[in-house]
Amino acid sequence: MSKFKSEKKSVGIELKNAIMTGVSYMLPFIIAGAVLMGIARIGASMYGIDNIWDAAHSESANMFVRLFHDFDGFGGLALSFMLPVVAAYIAFAIANRPALAPGMIGGLLASNLGTGFLGALVAGLLAGYIVKYLAAKIKLPQALASAGPIFLIPVGGTLLVCVIMMYIVGAPLSSLNSGLENWLLAMSGTNKIVLAAVIGGMVGFDLGGPVNKAAVTTAMALLASGIYDPNTAAQVAIIIPPIGLGIATLIWKNRFPESLQEAGKASTLMGFIGVSEGAIPFAIANPKVILVNVIGSAVGAAMAVGLGAVNKAPISGFYGWLAVDGWFVYVISIAVGAAIIAVGSLLFFTGEAIKTPEKPVSAAPKFALKR
Rank of each mutant, 00 (worst) to 15 (best):
Y319C: 13
E352P: 03
P314S: 10
A339E: 00
A302D: 04
A353V: 06
I354S: 15
I334T: 07
G337E: 04
E352L: 13
G337L: 03
F328P: 00
L322N: 08
I332N: 00
E358M: 13
V331H: 00
W321E: 12
G351P: 08
F328K: 15
E358A: 14
A342P: 01
L322M: 14
N311H: 03
L346T: 15
V324Y: 09
I341M: 12
G344D: 09
V329E: 09
S333N: 02
A309H: 10
T356C: 04
F348C: 11
L322Y: 07
V343L: 14
S316Y: 00
F328A: 13
L347S: 13
W321G: 07
F349S: 10
G337R: 02
E358R: 13
L347D: 08
Y330A: 05
L307M: 15
F318L: 15
A338M: 03
A323T: 05
L322Q: 08
A304N: 03
F348Y: 15
F349H: 08
P314H: 08
L307K: 13
G306H: 05
T356W: 02
V329L: 09
L307W: 12
V331A: 13
V329M: 12
I340E: 04
G306I: 06
P314Q: 07
V305R: 06
F349G: 11
I354V: 14
I354E: 14
V336P: 06
A338S: 14
F318T: 09
A309R: 13
V329S: 11
V305N: 09
L322P: 00
V331E: 00
I332C: 07
A302L: 03
W321C: 09
W321K: 03
V324H: 08
F349V: 10
S316N: 01
S316Q: 01
S333D: 01
G344H: 11
A323N: 07
A313Q: 13
A304Q: 02
A335Q: 00
G337W: 01
K312N: 12
I315H: 15
F349R: 06
V305H: 06
I315W: 12
G351E: 10
V336G: 04
L347N: 14
F348P: 10
F328Q: 15
V329C: 07
A342T: 03
A309Y: 06
G306S: 07
I341T: 11
G337I: 01
V329Y: 07
V310H: 05
V331G: 00
V310E: 08
S333H: 02
P357V: 04
V310T: 14
S345H: 06
A309N: 11
V336S: 04
G317E: 02
T350E: 08
A323W: 04
A309I: 10
G320Y: 01
V305W: 05
D325M: 12
I334R: 05
V329K: 13
G308A: 09
A323C: 05
M303H: 01
I315P: 00
L347E: 05
A302E: 03
V331Q: 00
G306E: 04
P314F: 06
I334D: 08
I334V: 13
G351H: 10
A304M: 03
A309V: 10
L322E: 06
